[in-house]
Structure formats: C-alpha cells, structure tokens
Amino acid sequence: MNHWITVRSRQISFRIDRRVPIVLVVLGLITLAIVLLSLGQGEYPISPIDVLKTLLKIETDNADYDFIIHTLRLPRALIAFLVGVGFAISGAILQGITRNPLAAPDIIGINAGASVVAVSFIVLFPSVPGFVLPIAAFAGAFVAAILIYLLAWDGGSSPIRLILIGVGIAAFTNAVISVMLTFGQINSVSQAWIWITGSVYGRSWEHLLPLLPWLIVLIPLALLLSRDLNVLHLGDDVARGVGSRVEWQRVLLLITSVALTGASVATAGTVGFVGLMAPHLARQLVGTAYEGLLPTAALMGGMITVLADLLGRTLFAPTELPCGVITATIGAPYFLYLLYQNRHQ
C-alpha cells in the first residue's frame, strides 16, 4: 500500500504522508471546538451555539454578544492560536536544523533574547507604536541566535553546548529583564507577568495586526523550505551529497525560525515549551517528513496555546493564570520525559 500522497505540477512537487490530511482536519476541528468554548467562557458566559451564531453574524437574542465576542474575546483567542502556531513552526525548524530533539526557541535562549529587547523597548521608549515591537523583538531574537551559535561553535556546532549556552543566556537575560522592571515604570504587576510568564491577557485587534504580516510571509516560506529541511535532517554530508546548498539553506531556515519566535514573543511574551512539545506530538501523529510535519505541528501548537489559555482562565476562575504558566507546567515534565527517552544518547 502506498504511504504517500504525491502532488506534482510544473513548478512544484511534493509528497505528504497519507495520514496528514486526516490528522489536519481532526486537529482543526478540535481547535475550532476549543476556540468556541474559549469564546463562550468568561465573566459573562455565552453558550457555544450563540458564539457560533455571533461569529456567523446571525441575529441572537442578546445585542451585547457581538461586542463581547468580536471586540473582547475573538482577538485574544486568535492571538493565542497564532502565537502557538509561530512557536511550533519555529521549534520544528530548530529541531530539524540542529538535529536535536531537545532544541526549542525557549530552551536554547532565543525567546529570552526577543523578550529582553521587547521589555527594554517598552520600558525605555513607552510611546513606540505597536508595529515596532515585533521588529525589535526580532532583532533581539536574531542577536541572541547569532550569539548562541557563535558561542556554541567548536569546529562545528555541538548540540550539547547549544543547550548549555542557551541556559546561560536565558539566565542572563532574565536578570536584565528584572533590572528593567525594577528600573522602569511598569508598575502594574500584570504587565510584568505577561513578559515573564507569557500571556495573552488583554490582547486586542491592535496587537493582532502587527503580528499578521510576519506570519503571512513566514509560514508559507517555512512550508516552501520544508523539503530542504528533510534533506538537512539527514546530516550535512548527505545533504551536500544530494546537492543541497547546506549553509545557505540553514541560514534561511534559521532566520525564518528566529523571525517567527520574535514576532510571537513580541505579542504574547515567552509562552514556554510550545515550541518543544508541538513538533514532538506532531511527529508521533504524522511521522518525520517535514512537508506534513510543519502544518501538523503548527495546528498542534495553536491548539495547545488556545487550550492553555482556556484552562488558565477556567481552572481557578475568577483568578486568571497566564497561559505560559500552564504550558510550562505541562511542558517541563514533558521535557523531562524526552530527556528520559533520549537517555542512552
């Protein structure tokens, strides 16, 4: 039996695992269900049916629903989803190019670089317009990535040192963030926690708009590059042997990954471990071919973040936990489990 679906046209050809379309549809439906639940959940509960009606602009009994859903809750849910997508794709790419199952933007310190620059911008230049923030965060993430790569370089980048140095960079930037928060006028604790733990609290359309262009450009780019990722995953020598321009592809992929992380962090702070978990879960569902893996991981990441946000709001209502706390509480044990899985390496 044929495991693959092959798509061929004049410009482009690719093949995906037979499981991918089904998995994508199922994941999409689950995510949609969670979003509907999430939109209905809150201080002012709305039934999922009414949520659906409001979304489809069908008249409901209550005129307030439109405002609550479209202005307050929908942007938040969308941002949670998109940020999760960003982190997941970024993590999947990183795991591919480092050939390291434990690599993720948060673990090797790229998130930390993005968030320290974003926080510094907010503290030092409080009046910057919203669209600058993702650019700044991207710059921070990029500098951090270069720094980590250079510091970990030892006649070839060693996966072990990559992670150790990431741990060090994260410790340093966390200290700088704390200095900024002490020094700056961010007196509201909730603002500070957004950056430290990762939260989509109070995010609205104005936060969504600066994020969108990045995703619109970067996600298709990542999908286009997924074939190269497959080849790179085989190892540098093999990749060179089949005609890949290894260094060039790696740089392009790294930039894509870093940019996705930067844009996501600029919007919601460091929502930890999504970039680690989503690719692994996706790999268990659809195997290791990146054409299928990237979209699956993306949906998975979006689902995890939306679910984490929903849990954070409902577990101890009316008190709200940032979704980053939930993802870290689930993700850290998962990381330990991965460590256990890879114990013989």
């Binding site: 434990l102 430290i196 706390v325 870290a328 509480t329 990381f335 460590l339 114990r343 013989h344």
Partner: peptide
C-alpha cells in the same frame, strides 16, 4: 538515567527543567 550515567549535560538539563516547572508552579 541511561547507560552513559551521570553527565554534566543531563544533570543541568534535568535541573533547568525542574526549575522551569517549580517556577511556573510558584508563579501560579
């Protein structure tokens, strides 16, 4: 854990994963 016994990397990774976990529980 594992055949190679205690290595610096595993020890540090286990430590930092636990730190993440405990930090997020403390934050909650």
């Amino acid at each position: 854990l594992g055949r190679s016994g205690m290595t610096p990397l595993k020890l540090v990774l286990a430590g930092s994963a636990l730190t993440y976990l405990l930090f997020s529980l403390t934050t909650s």
